[in-house]
Write a protein that binds this DNA or RNA. Structure first.
Lengths: 225, 225
DNA sequence: TCAAAAGTGTTGTGCATACACCCATGC
DNA sequence: GCATGGGTGTATGCACAACACTTTTGA
């Protein structure tokens, strides 16, 4: 290496944190998981995504998992790294570098029910969040939109079995636009990423719908849209 | 938030670092910038990508810029965040969380010339690197490959003006496969991401080639391949 | 006139889009 | 028999892949 640069006396000046932008469909709406933030005097009763400090003996991924568990009572879910936010003044209390994650939760999952401090909030009614969390949510949504077009990660927002109409509705929610039913079915079946479960869904006074399941739980890239 | 977790007595246990995987075409080969790593007794005379500690008053992006400047004498270049590596034992000396970046350098750029500690190394002859740097390089290459297919970032590997054959050769180097000349030209021109500069390149006993330039310096997403 | 790279079009095939009606069920 | 969502096919145009020869220049 060329030359040594002046080093700060204390090289451990920063705190490492992680934040998780968790999406989930709730009552037909694409929602994000928020928790109350109270870091007086800077943020009083604001909302923010779930996050917290990384511990000395855990990776940021493990930390994200632990924080979801302890702060929102959520078990395991699909997660991927999103972006690392390192603005010097992103936390008014001091230097905090946060590794943001994208998380996807199934509708069946229950989190923070009964708690006043944890809520699923529709993206169409997103408040001003603490810190740079609005930016994180925007980035998470952008990433989700991109990735459902070429991977099978939507499965993490769906139950084990689902109808094609439900799958299409989910794509439409995430992409925020209508899709053609026949073309959607052709495309999604052509990828072979889903297959018929063999079971039918009977519900109400309607023709029963075939229930499908994902062929592989591993994240795969396939051209869908 | 639900409950408080036990916090470590010193929450500032970690060091934040950044590493930059810089690609550049050198003599027709796709190369990556490496520097000598000597962290006795763990790594003696190994190679690794350029990196170092983030300072208290800089973002990781600024830090990457500074480190490239001071360690390799490189000015500004295109950079984007790649991934944050946080394995607990990725650095044998202690906990270091590193935010890796992807960098692209033009062939005209000179770095570390004359230094024994800085080298551009062909990807086809990549040695065992220090830390988790092989993983970083692999991830950087994967990202570059994906992104040249749908953005105009190749421009950062090219001089201001270039011929279509040079552009195609670059795509072939990065993707490591041959492309059809006529189809390549049609596709790349259809995106309108490049345009004729109006100048011709005369060289040797050959038909002169039209020189092209990028229409926009901003990173844009366009369907290319 | 030769060597070396630049430049250029057509055709077939498959894929995407647009679009509307019948089906199965429970009440 | 009606209301509700489930399920299906075709025609058209567009995009992509495969493919080979002529042009321009300097030596």
């Amino acid at each position: 290496m060329a030359k040594n640069v002046a080093r700060p006396k204390n090289i451990r000046f920063a705190v490492i944190a992680t934040d998780i932008v968790v999406f989930r469909i709730v009552a037909g709406e694409l929602c994000v998981l928020l928790g109350k933030v109270n870091t007086s005097p800077y943020f009083i009763n604001r909302w923010g995504v779930i996050g917290g400090l990384v511990l000395p003996k855990e990776t940021v991924e493990k930390s994200a998992e632990r924080l979801l568990q302890t702060k929102a009572g959520i078990g395991s879910m699909y997660k991927e790294q999103l972006y690392t936010f390192s603005s010097v003044d992103r936390d008014p209390r001091g230097r905090v570098v946060s590794v943001a994650h994208l998380g996807l939760a199934k509708e069946s999952l229950r989190a923070g029910e009964g708690s006043m401090d944890i809520r699923w909030v529709s993206l169409r009614a997103l408040p001003d969040l603490a810190y740079d969390h609005n930016e994180m949510v925007a980035m998470g949504l952008e990433r989700l939109r991109a990735r459902i077009g070429y991977t099978n990660i939507v499965q993490h927002l769906l139950p084990e079995t689902f109808t094609l109409s439900e799958l299409q509705a989910l794509y439409e929610k995430v992409l925020n636009r209508k899709l053609d039913k026949r073309n959607f079915r052709k495309k999604v079946l052509k990828t072979r990423m889903i297959r018929k479960s063999g079971i039918m869904k009977k519900e109400g006074a309607m023709r029963p719908a075939a229930l499908y399941e994902f062929a592989s739980k591993a994240v795969k890239t396939v051209q869908i849209l």
